Amino acid sequence: MSDAPVLSIQDLTVSLGTRRGAARAVAGVDWSVRAGETFALVGESGSGKSMTVLAATGLAPEAARVTGRVELLGEELTTMPAQRRRRMRGRHVGFVFQDPMTSLNPVLTVGRQIAEPCEEHLGMSRRAARDRAVELLDLVGIPSAAQRVEAYPHQFSGGMRQRVVIAMALACEPDLLIADEPTTALDVTTQAQIVELIVELQQRLGTAVVWITHDLGVVAGVADTVAVMYGGRIVEQGPVEAVFADPSHPYTAALLAARPEPGRVVAQLPAIQGSPPSPFELPPGCAFWSRCPVRADARCEHELPPLAEVAPAHLVRSFYQQARQGEGR
């Protein structure tokens, strides 16, 4: 694994202009991912996971105001001219989103859709790009790839369409693969196949992977580092084994407690009471305060805890845990 990050995000903030006013979707986020590493972003819907990555890669909505520093392969993206950023993104970043049908054009063959970025970003001839499409379809496990390259998206099952999207994402051999809830719309068996496929391809190609998901089981199986987001901020981050074994933020602990586990029989999984805060009315302190079952430090309600280290490479945004760590030293 290289020491130089493939993608580095520093103090990223995203505000969305709406008729109701400005909504803060992301606030002061920092993280990086290296070649061959998998970085997972987890949290409830609306926590800022997808917006972080969309803003970092220049795909945020036009109404978004993005500040901070984002480097892809050492080049600053936020100040880069739009055309240059588009070429950087097309050549070096692959995307796999939740619903493959929204990523595929229904009136073009899958082969044409895979070949197009090869022609655009790698300068391949049309014939060479088609051969590359066949090679990629075979790589992701599409049977009879030489024939199916001429098929249309509706002629594939949901799992096979997602494999096609993965083939598209890998067409230019990107340095970074972003998988945003890539298995949510699939059945359990197909989910496992897609996860296994992405892991296998990463090991073969050495690609950096950012995995955005609600599925903590997937995170436990594929991620090296996990960041837990709430209210647009990272509340806990660290090696996945450390975070899962010793969750230091009450929100992380609540998410893990609500995770179904093989062999554990319960009448009802514990739920987190209350609702996430509105991005229009975020509190001055910890955004999780109103739902927090611990509330061990009154400062959390009015003062934002810093993201501080409580163990090697294990960061948490909690006055209580930071105080406990200080007492143990």
Score class of each variant (00 low, 15 high):
253 A>G: 13
158 G>S: 12
253 A>T: 05
2 S>Y: 14
175 D>W: 01
38 T>V: 09
168 M>K: 01
166 I>S: 03
158 G>T: 10
103 S>F: 02
160 M>L: 09
166 I>Y: 05
78 T>D: 03
185 A>L: 04
56 A>D: 01
218 V>G: 00
8 S>F: 10
201 L>S: 08
142 I>K: 06
291 R>L: 12
240 V>N: 06
229 M>F: 10
107 V>F: 10
185 A>N: 00
2 S>K: 11
324 R>I: 15
44 E>D: 06
196 E>K: 12
110 V>N: 03
93 V>D: 05
166 I>Q: 01
194 I>G: 09
313 A>D: 12
114 I>R: 05
191 Q>N: 09
113 Q>T: 03
234 I>C: 05
70 V>T: 00
231 G>L: 11
162 Q>D: 07
103 S>K: 05
93 V>S: 08
178 I>V: 15
216 L>A: 04
19 R>M: 13
13 T>I: 08
173 E>W: 09
129 A>M: 04
254 A>I: 01
169 A>F: 05
313 A>S: 12
292 C>K: 03
280 F>R: 13
76 E>C: 08
12 L>E: 07
259 R>F: 04
138 D>A: 08
239 P>W: 05
258 A>K: 07
73 L>G: 06
56 A>K: 02
90 G>D: 04
128 A>Y: 12
251 Y>H: 12
82 A>Y: 02
95 F>L: 13
76 E>W: 05
265 V>C: 07
319 F>M: 05
193 Q>S: 10
24 R>Q: 14
176 L>M: 11
34 R>Y: 06
251 Y>V: 10
276 P>V: 00
275 S>M: 13
88 M>F: 11
292 C>L: 04
218 V>W: 00
266 V>N: 12
37 E>K: 08
108 L>C: 09
260 P>G: 04
269 L>A: 08
203 Q>M: 06
207 T>W: 00
32 S>I: 00
272 I>C: 01
122 L>T: 02
22 A>N: 12
270 P>E: 04
169 A>E: 06
172 C>I: 05
326 G>H: 13
25 A>L: 14
247 P>K: 03
215 D>T: 15
176 L>E: 10
151 A>L: 15
192 A>T: 03
102 T>D: 12
316 V>C: 08
